[in-house]
Amino acid sequence: MTALSRLAGVVGQPIAHSLSPLIHSTWIAAAGLDASYEPFGPVGEPAFAALVDEGRAGRLTGLNVTAPYKSLALALADDASVVASTCGSANLLTFQNGRVHADSTDGEGLMQALAEQAPGLNVSGRSVVILGAGGATRAAAVALKAAGAKVGLLNRTQSKAEAVAADLGVVVVDSEALEEAALVVNALSVPPDVYAERFASDTVLMDMTYRPLVTPFLAAGRARGLRTVDGLAMLIGQARPSFEALFGVPVPAIDIRTVVLKALGETA
């Protein structure tokens, strides 16, 4: 493998639904790189660890990592960024000289999505509520806390929220916090059990899910005239720094969102 012949990819289980190969392959072609970005679907932790060993051996330049391997990705790394260490998980592994470096670009993707689709939103000093207490919640909480937000976690199982909040230095809130939130982020994989009527007129709603692009959560917010931010914007946002880390060149200036929307059969 030379600098002009690189193999990277995304790893998870299941993986067939991932849009990352489409995004990165489109950028690779636009940049004229001698490179490839492929999906990998190892079944079980030993198989994932074996794939990481392929990277150590120099046969991969790096991997994006999705569920259920983000925590293991961090554990197998030789060193990690402050963000990944704080999140307790990694969505990006890069390999160099037999060593594995872990990073997390999910939070950066979230902040890019907010800047793109809710310009002017300033969360510094304001209340933000994140729905859920899983891995996606951790990345969102770390990024929003770094931006100065007062982050609260709202989860059906309060004990799980309390454990995550203690790790990250944020708080657990109840549903009344929705009424004062400048931003509400759905980090659940299912529609949340909250009602749009509870939000203030200037609350911004964000959903990390992008199938469908306009989720029931976002649709209810739009019906009230609230600003919304979709999960596709976050997906593309986290992919940008990943591409630069994996291939060592800037992201080409092309309309990747339109490419992905076409693949999804969406027009919004």
Rank of each mutant, 00 (worst) to 15 (best):
L4E: 10
A8R: 06
G12Q: 00
I15A: 11
I28P: 02
D34H: 10
D34F: 06
G41R: 07
E45Y: 06
A49M: 02
A49K: 05
A49H: 08
L51S: 04
D53H: 08
E54P: 04
L60S: 10
G62Y: 00
S71H: 14
L74A: 07
S81T: 15
A84E: 12
A84K: 15
C87E: 07
G98I: 12
D103W: 05
S104F: 10
E108M: 11
L110Q: 09
M111I: 14
M111T: 14
M111G: 05
Q112N: 15
A113R: 03
L114Y: 03
A115R: 12
Q117L: 00
P119D: 11
G120C: 14
G120T: 13
L121M: 12
V123R: 11
S124V: 13
S127H: 12
V128A: 15
L131R: 05
G134D: 13
A136I: 11
R138Q: 15
A139D: 07
A141S: 07
L144R: 14
A146H: 07
A147I: 10
A147P: 02
A147W: 08
L154N: 07
Q158P: 00
Q158D: 00
K160H: 02
A161F: 06
A166Q: 00
D167P: 05
D167W: 08
G169K: 01
G169E: 12
V170C: 09
V171L: 01
V171R: 04
V171E: 05
A177S: 10
L178P: 03
E179I: 08
E180Y: 10
E180F: 12
A182Q: 13
L183Y: 10
L183K: 07
V184A: 11
V185S: 05
N186H: 01
A187Y: 05
V190Y: 02
E197W: 06
F199H: 11
F199E: 11
A200K: 11
M206H: 11
M208F: 05
T209L: 01
T215N: 03
T215I: 01
G221P: 04
G221F: 11
A223L: 07
R224N: 09
L226F: 03
L226T: 05
T228D: 00
L232F: 01
Q238T: 09
L246Q: 04
F247T: 05
F247G: 06
A253Q: 13
D255N: 12
R257S: 09
T258G: 03
V260P: 03
L261T: 01
K262E: 02
